[in-house]
């Protein structure tokens, strides 16, 4: 019963925060609401026995990505943009597309049932700790995707600097 109450709190708060985020006029406000949403997602990860992912969520998303967004918005000085309308003229077409793809995805997700195929028990993870379990899997079985992800991050660093730097005459 307690589980349901906690999950209900998380679900209601996250959905209303998501709605608030996409409808605010001032981007600064929506980013602050997004931060609260990220903390709630981290709480949901804790609820699903994924402590390492909860820590990563807070450190990387709340600590790095959202701060990056905040810095860029402060750099751009968007005062005069606040007076214009926030939704594009074509937003009903977007709503139609969302409804159509919602129907398609809901049919495909709830039409397929999954069996318990894995052999990892919650007690196994709790015995060694989630960080150790993820680390063993990441550096043994999924080493190649890990290296590819590091290459993607390198490309992102170089690309961001090349794109945003001023031309030197």
């Amino acid at each position: 019963m307690l589980n349901q109450i906690i999950f209900g709190y998380f679900a209601v708060t996250m959905i209303s925060l998501a709605l608030i985020v996409i409808t605010r006029k001032n981007i600064m406000h929506s980013i602050v609401y997004m931060l609260i949403l990220f903390f709630h997602i981290a709480g949901l990860y804790l609820f699903l026995n994924a402590e390492f992912l909860a820590a990563i969520q807070i450190i990387v998303y709340a600590g790095a990505i959202m701060v990056l967004f905040l810095f860029v918005i402060m750099l751009l000085n968007l005062r005069e943009e606040l007076r214009k309308s926030r939704f594009a003229i074509t937003w009903p077409i977007g709503a139609i597309f969302v409804v159509l793809s919602a129907v398609m995805i809901i049919i495909s997700v709830f039409g397929n049932r999954f069996a318990n195929v894995g052999n990892v028990k919650i007690s196994d993870i709790e015995k060694v700790g989630h960080t150790v379990a993820v680390g063993k899997l990441l550096f043994v079985e999924y080493l190649f995707p890990f290296e590819v992800a590091s290459l993607i991050l390198l490309v992102a660093i170089v690309g961001a600097i090349v794109l945003a730097k001023k031309e030197i005459k």
Partner: peptide, 15 residues
């Protein structure tokens, strides 16, 4: 789907 609607309807590229 809330995120998808935000992507398709907002004019602001940061949003």
């Amino acid at each position: 789907f809330i995120g998808m609607f935000g992507f398709l309807s907002r004019r602001n590229i940061i949003m």
